[in-house]
């Protein structure tokens, strides 16, 4: 447990010291979303209809943007092999690093989302479900992303490959994340969609660290 906290604390300290990296993905989130009213036109009804989809797609891309630093930096400076020799199994190392990644990327996105939702004229009734869906969905994005980041360790220009691996796997989160918000706005009840998101989160919590841990072990050869 102490080793788990040590990794979490260090990754958070690194993320804070490199505040720019965290700010960057939030800034990307904000900028992408502000592009839509400019591109689609300022018609409030149109914006309200596409708001949930736009928010989710932008969130997906922002998380994707930050994935390459999840393991790559530690791999390059030799920390990862030293951590691999430590007492903590690699699966738990992955979990600690994913948690730090979510706290420094996913959480800021959730905090920024309500303001941007209002910017896109999303009905206020949709906001609570949007936050709930993002709270369930963004950890899945970090977890699935960890698999991609671990698989592309040591690959030159791994960033493009990473997107190709990860984005298709993000589709279910996108579909149910958007469906939850739309359902609550149209008064249908978002419960089933949120439950499905939760049902995706649970196995990801177990399976993603296993897969990522195994690929890190290969990368350390």
């Amino acid at each position: 447990m102490r080793a788990f906290l040590a990794i979490l604390r260090r990754d958070m300290a690194v993320a804070l010291a490199q505040g720019a990296a965290t700010l960057l993905s939030v800034a990307f989130f904000v900028v992408t979303i502000t592009l839509f009213p400019l591109g689609v036109g300022p018609d409030p009804a149109t914006l309200a209809r596409i708001s949930s989809g736009v928010l989710w797609v932008a969130a997906l891309l922002s998380v994707l943007l930050s994935l390459d630093r999840l393991f790559q930096a530690d791999h390059e400076d030799g920390s990862l092999e030293q951590i691999g020799l430590g007492p903590l199994p690699l699966e738990l190392v992955v979990l600690a690093k994913v948690l730090a990644h979510w706290l420094s990327t996913g959480l800021p996105l959730i905090l920024a989302a309500p303001v941007l939702a209002l910017l896109l004229n999303m009905p206020v009734s949709g906001l609570p479900v949007l936050l709930l869906a993002m709270a369930l969905g963004t950890p899945i994005l970090s977890l699935i992303g960890a698999i991609g980041a671990a698989l592309t360790l040591g690959v030159r220009r791994g960033g493009v490959l990473l997107s190709l691996i990860v984005l298709p796997l993000y589709i279910p989160v996108l579909i149910f994340g958007v469906a939850a918000v739309d359902a609550s706005i149209s008064g249908l009840g978002a419960r089933p969609h949120l439950l499905i998101l939760a049902a995706m989160l649970a196995p990801s919590l177990v399976l993603a660290p296993l897969a990522a841990g195994a690929s890190i072990r290969l990368a350390l050869e």
Binding site: A13, V14, D77, S79, E81, L85, P87
Partner: peptide, 16 residues
């Protein structure tokens, strides 16, 4: 637990 390894890479985080 019984081994310590020092390799070519220093495993030092520059910002800390």
């Amino acid at each position: 637990r019984t081994i310590a390894y020092v390799g070519h890479l220093d495993a030092v985080k520059p910002m800390l």
